[in-house]
Structures are given as structure tokens and as C-alpha cells.
């Protein structure tokens, strides 16, 4: 038990020092980098480490006869959560959201310190000591608080009132409701019934099972199946069209959606909203192939009225590609990300 706790304390101290150092630029802020794709797991792991660290630390300190008062434990933990949200989480969370998390964790800390009558007493003891002090440090402290609190509150409210030019929060509709049908290059496609004409097996028949069996494997790297190389010249059907779709993708789409289809292409840094990340399970994996066909053909300018802010630079690809080329690109996108298109039922 003791060994476990001291290990926890060690992890906690190292973690806090590292985090503090990175926040204040004492060590390079890239020392422990958040790696895209692992970010949520990484953060959960980090937080687990810190919780273990705190538990271990407080145990060690009380074992050594210098226990942290409950009061400071509560405040310290809450402050840590606020700082972690502000400085560590990336991309940054807007203040309003942080305020919400902050309130929730404040309530949680409150519940923790007031879990039993004893705990609650311990928690409020320092406050009472200061309030009731007749002399010594605490009395001084009380006077300091009496002076400081109004100044701080006044200062904060001044800060809140001074006109600021913060970026307005930009919410947007990610997947607007599709129309029943869409007209591309003079032909009308009903979204519910249209099919990708290139989702075919080697004999040229529409075959979802065959094509789904030949997409890249899920898991790190999303590599192609060992015996399903689209660059094999002998390919017929699906894999041949995947390659053709890939060629079109890397002549047109990768500039924004990136070489790995993760929305981090060459020009992506300049655009807002950022280009869609197809490897994210929230994009093409959630949508039907014909929905993608509609979005690709019509682009940002073809977004319906409720699909604001209309700032998308997504080209209406009907201006650049034929219908066949659009279907092939869509085929490639599902192949490369290893997702199955959603069906209508």
C-alpha cells in the first residue's frame, strides 16, 4: 500500500512540475505533446495519473505527519482542474464552456468536502479560524481579506465590463438535412435510391459485401488489406475504381482534406471552418454515400439556408469533376478511411 501510494505521489509531483513548467515555458511547451487521434485517451490517462498523484501525495504527507488541511485540498484540486482546462486542453475551449465545467467541478469538490459532518467541519475550520481570530496571524489575515476582496471583485468586474474584441462564438450546422433529390450535370439523383455505380465486384455487379471486405483495415495507420492493393494492375471492379478515385482525390481534394483524409491539407490552416476530417467517426462514417454525393457536388455555396455560416470554401465539385469522378472519389474516401457508408434503413 505504502509503495503504491509513494509511486502515486511521485507520478503526481512529476506531472505537476512538468505541467507547470510547460505552462510557464520553463521547459519547452512541446515536451509532452498531445498527439492527434489519441488526444481524448491521452487526456483521460493524464487525469488518472494526476488523481493517483494527488491521492498518493496527500497520503504521503499525512504519513509524514504533515497532512494537507481538507480546506486546501479542495481548493487546490479545483484550481488544478481550472488550470488544466485552460492551459492543457487543445484546441482551446471557449470561456463559457470552461465556466460550465468549472461550476460542475466546484459542486463536485463541494460534495466531496461536505460528504460527512466531520469533513465539513474540517473544511470550514480554517474559514472560522480567520473570522473569529482575536490576534496573531489570522487576525492580520482577516484584515487583509477585508481589504483585498472588494478590490479583487471590483477589479474583476471592471475587467468584465471593459469593451473587448473577443472572437464571437461560431456554431454551425455540421450535417444539414439533405434534400430528397439533387440535380447534377443535368441528371436528377434521388438520394434514397441512388447507388454508387462503382461499388461493384470483379464481375461488375453492385456488391456491398465484396467492397466492404476490401477496404483498409481499421486500427493504427489504416493500412490496406495485404491482398487488396489498388495499385495492382490486374485489378478489376472495386479496387480499380478505388485507385482511379484516389488519383482524383490527390489531384483535387488533398489540398484541404489532407494526405491522410484528416482535414489537414496544405491549405487547411487558412480556412475556417476547417476542412472535414474523414477519419473522424463523426463525418462520412455517419452518412450515406448519396448524402456525400450531394455535398460534394454542391459544395459550400450549395448549402441550404439553415446550413450557415456559409463560410465554407468547399468547391461545388460539379464545376470541376464529372459525375463518374465524384462517385469514384467517394468510393476512395470510404476505402481509405476504412468506414462503411451508412445505409438508408
Amino acid at each position: 500500500m505504502k509503495a503504491l501510494m509513494s509511486l502515486g505521489a511521485l507520478v503526481g509531483v512529476i506531472g505537476i512540475l512538468l505541467l507547470g513548467g510547460m505552462t510557464f515555458n520553463i521547459v519547452p511547451s512541446t515536451t509532452v505533446r498531445l498527439v492527434e487521434g489519441y488526444m481524448p485517451m491521452q487526456m483521460l490517462f493524464e487525469l488518472t495519473c494526476f488523481v493517483a498523484g494527488f491521492a498518493g501525495l496527500s497520503y504521503m504527507m499525512s504519513a509524514m505527519g504533515m497532512p494537507f488541511p481538507r480546506f486546501w485540498q479542495g481548493i487546490g484540486f479545483w484550481a488544478f482542474i481550472l488550470l488544466y482546462l485552460k492551459y492543457r486542453v487543445y484546441p482551446p475551449i471557449p470561456f463559457s464552456v470552461r465556466a460550465m465545467y468549472g461550476t460542475v467541478s466546484l459542486i463536485a469538490v463541494f460534495m466531496w468536502v461536505s460528504a460527512s459532518e466531520d469533513d465539513w467541519k474540517k473544511f470550514k475550520q480554517p474559514i472560522m479560524n480567520v473570522l473569529d481570530a482575536q490576534g496573531g496571524m489570522n487576525k492580520l489575515l482577516r484584515y487583509a481579506y477585508i481589504v483585498l476582496i472588494p478590490i479583487l471583485v471590483g477589479g474583476f468586474s471592471y475587467n468584465a465590463m471593459v469593451p473587448k474584441s473577443e472572437e464571437p462564438i461560431e456554431l454551425r450546422t455540421v450535417h444539414p438535412a439533405p434534400p430528397a433529390s439533387t440535380k447534377v450535370h443535368g441528371k436528377t439523383y434521388t438520394l434514397q435510391t441512388s447507388q454508387n455505380p462503382y461499388r461493384v465486384n470483379q464481375e461488375g455487379k453492385y456488391d456491398q459485401e465484396y467492397t466492404n471486405a476490401n477496404i483498409v483495415e481499421q486500427g493504427m495507420g489504416r493500412l490496406m488489406k495485404p491482398n487488396a492493393n489498388p495499385w495492382d494492375d490486374k485489378n478489376q471492379g472495386y479496387l480499380k475504381y478505388v485507385r482511379e478515385g484516389g488519383e482524383i482525390f490527390f489531384q483535387n481534394c488533398h489540398f484541404c482534406h489532407g494526405d491522410n483524409l484528416n482535414g489537414r491539407g496544405l491549405h487547411a490552416f487558412a480556412f475556417n471552418p476547417i476542412p472535414a476530417n474523414f477519419t473522424d467517426p463523426g463525418t462520412i462514417a455517419q452518412l450515406q454515400e448519396t448524402f456525400i454525393f450531394w455535398r460534394v457536388s454542391k459544395g459550400g455555396i450549395g448549402l441550404p439556408n439553415e446550413g450557415f455560416p456559409w463560410a465554407s470554401v468547399m468547391p461545388p465539385w460539379e464545376q470541376h469533376l464529372t459525375v463518374d469522378e465524384i462517385w469514384k472519389v467517394i468510393l476512395f474516401e470510404y476505402w481509405h478511411t476504412g468506414y462503411y457508408p451508412r445505409t438508408w434503413d
Binding site: 493500412l223 490496406m224 495499385w231 488519383e247 490527390f250 489531384q251 494526405d259 481509405h336
Partner: peptide, 18 residues
């Protein structure tokens, strides 16, 4: 052949489709 061929080409001559 999953990731690089699209730009660097089948023979690595930097002549892929992109």
C-alpha cells in the same frame, strides 16, 4: 502503397497522381 504512392509514385520517382 496505402499512403505514399499517391504523390511519390509507383517507382518512387516523385511522379504520383498528385
Amino acid at each position: 502503397f496505402t499512403k505514399c504512392v499517391w504523390c511519390h509514385g509507383v517507382d518512387g520517382a516523385g511522379d504520383g497522381p498528385g
